[in-house]
Design a protein around this nucleic acid. Structure first.
Lengths: 159, 159
DNA sequence: CCTCTGACTATGGCAACCAATAGTCAGCAC
DNA sequence: GTGCTGACTATTGGTTGCCATAGTCAGAGG
């Protein structure tokens, strides 16, 4: 049996969720600035340590540490490769779990551009087919776009 | 004039984006575990300091600090209210910028439930109208759902 | 006036994150 | 084998985040 709680004042009786909550676990795994920036670069197509570390603009030590954590979290994998005349190296590739973070990364990016503007030219994300700007939205498996009012935040409870 | 770079190996020449990137600014403002958990509770409908701090399960000092930062970031506002027979208090309400974070919060939640499972019963988000599970996805302003392959990560460049 | 409660503020201490610098290690070029 | 380069590892030190405990402050009830 499942009890569903409405988002609006759906009091859970002030019981903390702690690490029972997916947000908590996600933030503990990858919820820091450097990890998100590394993911941004991974989505941009950067795969090599040197490139990732330079493009994020973080020290090598931090980049190595974060990449190790991202691999441990199953977001990236280290895959060996070799260019002709070079020795074998490893590149960091997004796993399925990593690709699944795209809406989050784009959501953070879009929010920052809109609500925390800087003096710089904003980056834009657009749809290759129609050129329109792209945003993160909620969608149900039936294909409907879900607004905040139509979202039911539920907790499954033992029967 | 605008130059658009494809996501896949769209080398920007290894120039770091730094705080020119919206992800960076967003993460600096609200990119920590406690802030996200406070937002989760705000979306659940919690508005009072006591409730927020208890439901997140964080110390009062940290809750006060994060809430102050969220207000400063324009994500929450403090609104005075009074219940009959009580003195005036303040409640924390989501601003427009705060509501705009819903896809990010649900994205983090959904990812954690899927790729960082715990022993607990997962929480579910569903569509009030059809009951189907809800996920964060990318959509362009023309209404198309955008896949990773069809996403163009662009940078606007001075003409 | 005193108390009680919700909403904080203050202090001390530990751990995580970050920059900067220096050092290591593997293997292709020579 | 020596040099060079990409990919790290180690160390020092500063800043931030967190917890725990204790203290403050405002105002309704008594």
């Amino acid at each position: 049996m499942t009890v569903q709680l409405q988002g609006k004042l759906a009091s859970r009786g002030d019981t903390p969720l702690g690490d029972r909550c997916g947000i908590d676990r996600t933030m503990q795994l990858i919820g820091n600035r450097t990890a998100m920036l590394l993911l941004r670069e991974a989505f941009h197509g950067a795969t090599r340590f040197d490139s990732l570390h330079q493009r994020v603009g973080v020290s090598e030590a931090v980049a190595a540490q974060r990449l190790k954590e991202l691999v441990a979290a199953g977001v990236l994998t280290k895959v060996p490769y070799r260019e002709p005349g070079q020795r074998t190296r490893h590149e960091y590739l997004l796993t399925e779990a990593g690709h699944a973070l795209l809406p989050v990364v784009i959501g953070l990016l879009g929010w920052g551009e809109r609500y925390a503007p800087s003096g710089y030219n904003p980056t834009r994300q657009s749809h290759a087919h129609c050129g329109e700007p792209v945003h993160a939205v909620l969608q149900c498996e039936a294909g409907h776009v879900v607004t905040e009012e139509d979202l039911v935040l539920g907790t499954s409870v033992d029967a």
